[in-house]
């Protein structure tokens, strides 16, 4: 029993980390075709905003996370309107430009706010099963990850905005001719993507050291999850986080963190080779076969 729970706990922990790291990146990539190299830095910004709001201004932690995510979202929006919007038709150049942005963000934060800021310590303590202890906050993160995914799913599948956004993603020219303001859709998507990155940063800020370079530690996992997830950002992120969560937690538990990391990368390479469209592509294909 305890053994089962431990595996479950490690899997859920890994799953939520991958999902939260990747969701923002995945939405921006899936909807706009832009690989945002500054994604990790947006996560870092979210952590900074949250920590500053909660520690310096004594705003309750939950509200700080939300405000931090909104601030990050607006910063993303600003960058989109000033810089990224000029690159919609040049996805490869966007890699270079967003990399430049990431350099400026992480060093700029270091110059403005110093080498690290104080963050609040992890809330909620721990719970015990058998004679082993587990962090409660980490399980809360799992719940938050799932709720976030559901909200995003609702927005993109059951609102008018979502309909227009998906139309823009699939055929921007036709969407445009039908009166959808595609530019506005892209801007909104970038806002949501940055918001989610900021949210992730805020959520993980109590569990990590908040430093300007913390963003890079999310990048690898986020990219791999997006790769394996494939073209459909929401379904893909969910399925690939689940799949990679199992691989990562089992390998790390069995042979250490090194094996876990290498396992993720090898999974990604094999996956692209077998089905370049990712897990969501596989699901789409299965659906097509059924019909």
């Amino acid at each position: 029993m305890i053994l089962v729970f431990r595996h479950l706990y490690l899997f859920l922990d890994s799953f939520s980390f991958l999902l939260l790291s990747a969701l923002g990146l995945s939405i921006i990539y899936g909807m706009m075709g832009i690989i945002n190299q500054a994604h990790g830095e947006f996560i870092m910004l979210g952590a900074y905003f949250t920590s500053l709001l909660s520690v310096a201004l004594h705003i309750p932690f939950i509200i700080s996370i939300f405000l931090g995510a909104i601030l990050t979202g607006f910063l993303g929006l600003l960058l989109d309107r000033t810089i990224i919007c000029r690159l919609y038709s040049r996805p490869l150049d966007s890699i270079v430009v967003t990399w430049g942005i990431s350099l400026i963000l992480s060093q700029g934060i270091r110059i403005i706010l110093g080498n690290s800021v104080e963050s609040i310590s992890t809330p909620l303590g721990s719970f015990t099963i058998g004679n082993e202890k587990f962090s409660t906050y980490r399980m809360v993160l799992v719940a938050v990850a799932v709720i976030t995914l559901m909200v995003v799913y609702y927005i993109f599948n059951h609102t008018e905005f979502g309909l227009k956004a998906r139309a823009t993603m699939q055929r921007s020219d036709i969407a445009k001719s039908l009166g959808v303001n595609t530019d506005k859709m892209y801007a909104a998507t970038f806002f949501i993507g940055s918001f989610l990155a900021g949210l992730t940063g805020g959520l993980y800020s109590p569990t990590m050291m908040v430093v300007p370079t913390m963003g890079t530690s999310f990048n690898m996992q986020a990219f791999v999850t997006v790769i394996v997830g494939g073209s459909n950002p929401i379904l893909g992120s969910f399925l690939s986080s689940a799949l990679l969560g199992i691989v990562n937690s089992e390998l790390s538990g069995w042979a250490g963190s090194f094996a876990g990391q290498i396992g993720l990368l090898i999974m990604a390479i094999i996956f692209i080779r077998i089905c370049p469209l990712g897990v969501s592509g596989l699901v789409d294909r299965l659906k097509a076969v059924r019909r």
């Binding site: 810089i83 000029r86 690159l87 040049r90 150049d93 270079v96 430009v97 990399w99 430049g100 942005i101 990431s102 350099l103 400026i104 992480s106 060093q107 700029g108 270091r110 110059i111």
Partner: peptide, 20 residues
């Protein structure tokens, strides 16, 4: 100077935005 990365980043962005 600690502006190293900021200057490099800015040059890259400016070049790619205005001189594609």
């Amino acid at each position: 100077s600690s502006l190293n990365y900021i200057i490099l980043g800015a040059i890259l962005i400016v070049v790619l935005l205005f001189i594609p």
